[in-house]
């Protein structure tokens, strides 16, 4: 299938020489790609480039084969973008704010009215749709942000840390929405929470230090940490030694000692038991350089 959105050898250098994004290539077709990475990995910079908000220092962004850096409006007309941080006009209601944005996008008045009503309903904002946004909680504002990203029928949806501030139920709603949308659209979901991606993404990319480290299906990414995840119960003093030598992904205090999950190429202590990795283990293995990545980056 032809890619819809292509980021080719994209780099972003800020003043002072910081390389936020370094030679990243991503070709994206319909489906949901989960972009994982620690804070400062360059995810948000890459999202802004994909959303045409920021120009790359070098490289290309192509939408349906056309240059979206020089002529961004074609992509913008088919784009839904939810930034990590965004503001609102605090004295407008959600309906007024979304109507304004719909006009900016050129959506017809009647269609906009119907669409906004439906979005407010889906995102559980209908009861508060006429109140000024200044009186909204952080989670409600995040849902308004999601609504604006879905104002049109976006062919490309770029969402940066969309679940921040949402309660568990709202996160389920969001995941279902994104999963629905990914059927025939490009959905790029950026987060540093591996579990947000695991349940919906058919494609996973992991960034760190501005570079794309790994890209693959969830199964391929999990395979990177195969045989490197161990569980063991140890006394407190052994835990200190383990921490110095290995990445500890989980620890629980039990009556018998500390039950820990350790990333290590071989058994970290004599009675450690190998366990199946989860996505968080694989993510930590990649970020900390433990994973065998050969052949996985596409």
């Amino acid at each position: 299938m032809e890619p819809v959105l292509e980021l080719v050898d994209v780099a972003k250098r800020y003043r002072g020489g910081l390389h936020a994004v370094d030679a990243v290539t991503l070709r994206l077709g319909p489906g949901l790609i989960g972009l994982l990475g620690p804070n400062g990995a360059g995810k948000s910079s890459l999202m802004r480039i994909a959303a045409t908000v920021t120009r790359p220092s070098s490289g290309q962004v192509l939408f349906d084969g056309a240059d979206a850096v020089r002529r961004p409006d074609a992509l913008r007309r088919r784009l839904g973008y939810l930034p990590q941080d965004f503001g609102v006009y605090p004295h407008l209601s959600a309906s007024e704010f979304l109507s304004y944005l719909a006009a900016v996008k050129g959506v017809g008045a009647r269609a906009a009215r119907a669409r906004i009503g439906e979005l407010l309903e889906i995102l559980d904002l209908a009861g508060a749709g006429r109140r000024p946004l200044g009186a909204y909680s952080g989670g409600m504002l995040r849902r308004v942000g999601i609504a604006q990203a879905l104002l049109t029928d976006p062919q490309v949806l770029v969402v940066d840390e969309p679940s921040a501030g949402l309660d568990p139920e709202q996160r389920v709603v969001l995941r279902n929405l994104l999963s629905d949308l990914a059927t025939d659209r490009v959905v790029v979901l950026s987060t540093h929470i591996a579990s947000d991606v695991g349940s919906v993404a058919s494609d996973i990319a992991i960034m760190s230090g501005g570079r794309l480290r790994v890209r693959g299906t969830p199964e391929e990414v999990l395979r990177l940490a195969q045989g490197q995840v161990w569980e063991v119960t140890v006394p407190a003093e052994t835990l200190q030694i383990l921490r110095q030598r290995h990445v500890i992904s989980k620890q629980v205090r039990t009556p018998a000692g500390m039950r820990v999950r350790v990333l290590a190429p071989s058994a970290p202590v004599a009675d450690a038991v190998p366990v199946a990795p989860d996505l968080e283990d694989a993510y930590l293995a990649v970020v900390h350089g433990h994973a065998a990545t050969a052949g996985v980056v596409r």
């Binding site: 007309r77 088919r78 719909a102 006009a103 900016v104 996008k105 050129g106 959506v107 017809g108 008045a109 269609a111 906009a112 119907a114 669409r115 439906e118 979005l119 309903e121 889906i122 995102l123 559980d124 879905l150 104002l151 049109t152 029928d153 389920v172 709603v173 279902n176 929405l177 629905d180 949308l181 059927t183």
Partner: peptide, 19 residues
């Protein structure tokens, strides 16, 4: 609300010119 499908919503295409 998770039962509501996005695909069943009113179609809202972006126009070539803003309103």
């Amino acid at each position: 609300a998770s039962a509501v499908s996005v695909d069943s919503m009113t179609s809202a295409r972006t126009g070539t010119r803003p309103g």
